[in-house]
Design a protein around this nucleic acid. Structure first.
Lengths: 136, 136
DNA sequence: TGCATATATGAAGAGGCATTCAGATGAGCC
DNA sequence: GGCTCATCTGAATGCCTCTTCATATATGCA
């Protein structure tokens, strides 16, 4: 049932011992392609910064201009712009320009779902929470 | 309808111009509490590393020992152990010990949902995606 | 008891990332 | 045209993170 080391383990099984080679091969076969996995990790990375996460959560309800996003997120306007640039580069948000204003909106259904799921989860724990006092 | 600057904008409205104060206040009132938001960002951060993400995806199907996780993820066993330690510290995975082996499993329903959603999405786009070439 | 195996840990180095500051672009207004 | 306002950009800096190497713990086995 348990074999080891002398069976064909697809890729880089050079120096690594393996306990359950069959499981390993199975799990490996179900692993997403490298590129997709890296993309996914990048998306999570975009949501891993509190400032950017605030921006994205704010945008769930509709578009906002940069200065309002800065006000909501607590970031400086420069930091906000940098963050939005990053998010835009990854097609997570899109911009609409009107005069000198720039209105940003969520532009990625997948990210929206992740955000909804995450916020729903926090609201769960919020039910237990008695207060909603100060912001920062 | 659009007011500005001279209304009470809860917290840090010192130097930041605000275009639509009502929207800002509304969005702010719906923003998760700071602590929860930071927690959420941390969870995303844990999934933002390709190595850790591979570990977590591998664990979706059941428990695995450290060396098999290393084999699956392509990480060194040391790096794997470090990663698992991090994940364990955040209660995302849990360990079961049997002899000198340590078997890890997913231990966070929320993370599992996020993973499922993410993997489902990659499997979707795998069929469709024509492009996604240049990022920045 | 002593050795090999499986995992855990600490320290350190390299790289990446977020913020800030200063300045640039570009639209609206007089 | 010249000024102001909203946003964008680049460079610099300090922090944080991931990996590796070396070593520690601890279990199983002879």
């Amino acid at each position: 049932m348990k074999r080891h080391s002398d069976e064909p383990i697809s890729a880089d099984a050079c120096s690594v011992r393996v306990v359950d080679g069959d499981r390993v091969d199975l799990v490996r076969s179900r692993m997403p392609l490298e590129d997709e996995l890296v993309d996914t990790a990048e998306v999570f990375g975009l949501m891993a910064d509190p400032g950017r996460l605030r921006l994205l959560i704010a945008l769930r309800e509709g578009e906002l201009c940069v200065c309002d996003l800065a006000a909501v997120s607590g970031l400086s306007e420069s930091a906000t712009s940098h963050a939005l640039r990053l998010l835009r580069a990854h097609r997570v948000v899109a911009a609409r320009r009107s005069g000198r204003m720039a209105y940003y909106r969520l532009d990625d259904a997948h990210v929206r779902m992740l955000l909804d799921l995450a916020v729903a989860h926090t609201e769960h724990t919020e039910a237990i929470h008695p207060e909603r006092t100060g912001d920062r």
